[in-house]
Design a protein around this nucleic acid. Sequence first.
DNA 1: ATTAGCATGTTACCTTATAACGTTCGCGAC
DNA 2: GTCGCGAACGTTATAAGGTAACATGCTAAT
Lengths: 170, 170
Amino acid sequence: MKPVGFHQHDHETCKSGGITSAVDYCETRGLQFTPVRRRTLEILLHEHRAMGAYDLLEVLGREGFGSQPPVVYRALEFLVRHGFAHKIERLNAFVGCVHPGADHAPAFLICRQCDAVAETRARPAMALLGDLAGEAGFRVERAVIEAEGLCPNCQEPANPGPESRGKDPK
Amino acid sequence: MKPVGFHQHDHETCKSGGITSAVDYCETRGLQFTPVRRRTLEILLHEHRAMGAYDLLEVLGREGFGSQPPVVYRALEFLVRHGFAHKIERLNAFVGCVHPGADHAPAFLICRQCDAVAETRARPAMALLGDLAGEAGFRVERAVIEAEGLCPNCQEPANPGPESRGKDPK
DNA sequence: ATTAGCATGTTACCTTATAACGTTCGCGAC
DNA sequence: GTCGCGAACGTTATAAGGTAACATGCTAAT
């Protein structure tokens, strides 16, 4: 059940950090960090990988929250809107955000083997992209940058797929 | 019905160019550029914007091809696999590729107003991204880069949405 | 107490995508 | 020639992702 981040890290800390910074953020702006929203973010942070809305929904349902799609989509919409989570377009899935608050132009590194997702800074790449686009007269408002490949763990031949939780090699 | 490219261009040429280069490519590799595949590409090139699979399917169906989803998804899979078309993840939609063959690390500029999609070179941004990822030990295999914003046409206040074909401003 | 706003829940439905299976056609082996 | 094969196409059925619309309950302001 090891939560596959790219490197060893104190997962408890990164989970609780994500939550407390969401709490703070909401408090200072009068936003309601309600139980579903909180729990949804907790699950995302705990799993530390991209999860489909319906996977989340199943968990929420089992825990006594509503079990219909709008429940989870609304929670996700809130989390994404305020930067506590991100949608991975490539996967139609969601990840919790580990760098709370901050300036946030994230790019994602998606391991095709174990589904782990890491967030990295996209600012430089964004700038370049903005320039290129500018030459064409296009004004960029936001950009999706998602790289797919192999994470450090999965590059070691000894780790063709971390225990049972990995994807089929297909 | 003006096919909204970002700037004026000889649309006929870009259409027929796309087709003939696909024909060539397929010929030299013994690939079958069948009627459905050809027609699917023609439609994409003609429209010159991102189209949903089901939009395409409707057209194909009306023209006497099969009218069930797998028909269009298979054609698209072929076109995408060989680089004749691309999927825009952000939109769950597809565009014809105008730079046939070539080396191809495309980034997309998506106008949120009129749905026009332009392709631009992503190589420099890719390189940057690859470096950043490398620092984290991640090996990038491919990347999705999709910028959303306003195309030159839609930046002019006079063009809040090109005639009837545009999106609702919402 | 009344009203307004927002969050939650539900039902019903739409869109996007794939699995599984049968048929047809072209082609090389025999 | 015809047998067997692989590739493409077609179908039915169903999975997976996402939203519209409406009812209920809480809280906060008047």
